[in-house]
Design a protein around this nucleic acid. Structure first.
Lengths: 181, 181
DNA sequence: TCATGCTTTCAATACTTATTGAAAGTACCC
DNA sequence: GGGTACTTTCAATAAGTATTGAAAGCATGA
């Protein structure tokens, strides 16, 4: 088996399994596959190339490419002399992480904070045992949610260097060879 | 409107909306609702009470209660003189967080690390431009995934106190009134 | 042993979400 | 204007996931 065949196999495997993983990350399989394809393409690609590579319909390719643009994970590129749009992914892994973190915070934490705020407010004057327990639990959840929101906010604004230094110093962790970056 | 009515409304609202949020957290709506119900119940509850409160079938209640037990978010309680099982949730918010974090790491990060390891291995000897780009990108993703895995691992083992001190000191964040805990 | 009360399973079904493909929209050029 | 090369939308459909309810399983005690 040649290195080239290994590579083709690895590439197909990566796209297909990254897609499957996408599901557990709360994004659709196809969107994750399109993202995978773009992350490993040295050149930007067109909607037609995307359809071809992933064997999906035009509508599907279009929707997911634009959704990725919406997330800020993919940019539209216009090539001179070409009428169609090309797409290229953000390749910097830390940037990808901060973008995804910000989006997940917005979709997963912020609404929880709002909900808890409302529930805390409406239960603050309640007398019953059940009511007291409710209010206490909601308050604790709220404190945590606000805390998580702030951590997310701060992290998503951090540059790679400071983030790594931070993690290194206080968790004693480091990805190999990255301490000098 | 009495405080009691506000409370009943808040409680129903909490259960129903926590369920909706569950979806974006990658767990099923019903499982999140069951969890919500248990978190705010001062007493442990039975399968029948769960069915009653949430208006769901026995099979559904059973499956989701047991799934929560599987996660470690809910415990089975046996009451003397009672033949049926009762369920109570872990109420400590930090413990809930570390349990969920561990589970999400296991389901969302670990498989990614495995995938990337395999892809890096199979593409390390490739010569083409496309192959080189692939290998480089996979390696960067792998470094990050391993890093994230370690952060998750460490965080999920942290006790609430040290975690808060840590966050306070280096992010300048604190949930109000918690610095002395 | 059988009746009772509870737990567990699972095939059928309902609900939710993703995908297709064709039609409509838009922008550019001759 | 009209033709061409794309992009965008969306109703129909397919695929995936959750829920039901009834039947089977299991433990207890009369």
């Amino acid at each position: 088996m040649s290195a080239t065949n290994d590579f083709i196999e690895a590439k197909d495997d990566f796209i297909s399994q990254w897609g499957a993983l996408g599901t557990s990350w709360g994004i659709s399989r196809t969107m994750a596959q399109v993202h995978a394809l773009l992350m490993i393409s040295p050149e930007s690609i067109s909607t037609d190339q995307c359809m071809e590579e992933l064997q999906i319909s035009r509508g599907n390719a279009h929707t997911n490419l634009k959704e990725l643009v919406g997330w800020g994970l993919v940019r539209i590129v216009v090539k001179k002399g070409e009428r169609k749009e090309f797409f290229e992914a953000e390749k910097d892994v830390w940037k990808v992480f901060t973008i995804v973190l910000r989006e997940r915070k917005r979709r997963e934490i912020d609404p929880a904070v709002e909900l808890l705020k409302g529930c805390a407010e409406r239960s603050k004057n309640v007398k019953s045992l059940e009511g007291q327990a409710f209010h206490k639990q909601i308050n604790e959840l709220q404190d945590f949610a606000i805390f998580a929101s702030k951590v997310g906010e701060t992290m998503s604004q951090l540059k790679y260097g400071p983030a790594i230094k931070f993690a290194d110093k206080f968790l004693g962790l480091l990805p190999k060879d990255k301490s000098m970056k």
